[in-house]
Amino acid sequence: MNELVFFINNVVVAGSVTGSIYAMGAIGVTLVFSIMRFAHFAHADMMTLGAFVVLLLSLAFPGAGSVVGLPTAIVMLPIAMVVTAAVAVGIDKAFYKPLRSHGVKPIVIVIGSLGVTLMLQGLLRLFAGTSPQNMYVAERKEIYRLELPFEAVTRPVIVTEPQVILFILVVAAVVGLHLFLNKTRTGKAMRAMSDNPDLARASGINTNHIVSVTWIIVGGLATMAGTLLSMDVTFKPDLSFFLLLPIFAAAIVGGVGHPYGAIAGGFVVGFAETLAVFNWAVLLRPFQERLPDWLELPNNLAFVGTEYKIVVPFFILVAILVWRPTGIFKGKVI
């Protein structure tokens, strides 16, 4: 039974964590895509930027967390979300809006977003250095060990504090986004603009306003995802190219332009990654005696080694492009 616990720890928990992070990232990418119609490559760096702002704030006020009883980083998260959202709106005004108003092809804006990626990366590395840093400045990361009430189980299921917070915040963000998109006037206007920008403009929707609102949401979500990822592992300034591919794969799997599809896609990609690097021999070993003699289990029965993790989102991307370019939820064909 310990093997099952091992499976829960390494696949169920880890997969939900990665899945939640990818889902939050993919929502941002898909929102930008449906409103402004370009693939925003700077998204992963926006996540890092948000996490860095949180890190700076926690370094400045290390005691703030113990007052409320939460990690300092979580207390600082709302402020950092506001800061990053402001930066995102500023980046749009400075770099994307001029290109948009020139009426260039979307791919040129994609290149522009690559320029922004590099600028953000350069600044982050200049100020944050290149070495990983711990987001827990003053306190320790709490680890919960849940003992299962079975005889045969001796190992606990392990969940850490940031993971619990992550699950809560993901659910809150998804519900909030759902209510915003379906109940508020601005949210409905956003959906209208995503369906047909010309018609939306003709019916009196202020598209500039919608674009700003989109960037505010995207910046906030990116900060959340980046901070929680950095709290779960460590803050790394040069993570972005490894995050980009899974996030885009998640957005495309879910169907570009579908926020709910992006959530599903995020979990698909996250679980696919963890299932692919999981060593299946661990689960099969208890059955070794019942297997026929000629079938000897190798020690390592993982689909890909951990170092090839990035292959998994790529193959999901290729498979979905070949078989169903619209994604699971019939997004826009691009």
Binding site: F38, A39, I107, V110, L244, F248, L321, P325, I334
Partner: peptide, 8 residues
């Protein structure tokens, strides 16, 4: 497909 996919 659209050129964004090629970039990704």
């Amino acid at each position: 497909l659209r050129s964004d996919y090629l970039a990704i």
